[in-house]
Design a protein around this nucleic acid. Structure first.
Length: 259
DNA sequence: ATGGTAGACCTTCTA
């Protein structure tokens, strides 16, 4: 079973590129971030034509996440628990049906810049709530995977020019520490040695020729519960998609589970 | 040090 995550930077502006990738990569499940539309404007029919069930947690103009699955989705949950006042659409969770059901969580973790504003506070609070949710799910001892745009550069080797990111919310010690703490709950990062070498980036800015200079960062991640980690057989970053016509600034990350 | 690009949408915000 292939599970993909991809920040598409507007699903409607990018629909041809997105559908082309789905037809080529044929993921069984995918979580999308930054769909940048309300539920009613999501191109549901286009994905249904490709055989997907669709769950959307949309928002006008900003953010927005979705989940697509060939198998039926159960127990769909929208919004990260822990703050009833949070109106940003950054979290979707569902159980993918099958002989071994797998809970899939798609996240668009807040960027957090500038760091001297409430945006950074919101990011850290959001990470604390994600930590609590993961902690709860772990007590169920079932296979689950958290995938998405984490907006965290875990290590220096995850940036081509790490010094450029000093002080940025994506690389601040607080953000990296919260990411480590999340993993240290007992989650396995899907990050094989082949792709784990320096240069395994998932994002290149549109500006200043970042792609041409390979000025990339690795900020899209997949974390697995122990029961899901035991099924992990592969990880791939679809780097070539960044060179397509009208690309997103992120590329897809795909994990393979032995199901 | 600044600005460079992209998307939504209305003028500036977010990234």
């Amino acid at each position: 079973m292939r599970i993909a995550t991809w920040n598409v930077n507007s699903v409607n502006a990018r629909i041809e590129t997105v559908l082309r990738w789905f037809e080529e990569a044929k993921p069984d499940v995918a979580v999308l971030q930054e769909i940048k539309c309300v539920d009613e404007k999501f191109p549901t029919e286009a994905f249904e034509r490709l055989g997907y069930n669709v769950a959307v947690h949309g928002q006008k103009t900003y953010n927005g996440v979705a989940m697509l699955s060939k198998a039926p989705l159960e127990d769909v949950r929208r919004g990260l628990p822990g703050d009833e006042t949070d109106e940003q659409a950054r979290y979707i969770e569902a159980v993918v049906s099958g002989p071994t059901p797998v809970r899939v969580i798609g996240i668009y973790l807040p960027n957090g810049n500038p760091v001297d504003t409430e945006k950074f506070t919101y990011k850290l609070g959001w990470m604390a709530r994600l930590h609590a949710r993961a902690q709860e799910l772990l007590t169920w001892e079932e296979p689950f995977a958290i995938l998405g745009d984490f907006n965290v550069i875990p290590e220096r080797r995850d940036a081509e020019f790490p010094d450029n990111w000093a002080g940025d919310a994506l690389f601040r010690p607080e953000s990296r520490g919260a990411f480590r703490a999340l993993k240290n709950l007992g989650l396995t990062e899907a990050y094989l040695q082949a792709d784990g070498a320096p240069g395994a980036y998932t994002f290149w800015d549109y500006q200043a020729g970042a792609w041409q200079r390979n000025n990339g960062i690795r900020i899209d991640h997949a974390l697995l519960s122990p029961q899901a980690a035991d099924l992990l057989t592969g990880v791939s970053i679809h780097r070539d998609v960044r060179a397509w016509e009208k690309p997103s600034d992120h590329v897809p990350l795909v994990i393979e589970l032995d199901l």
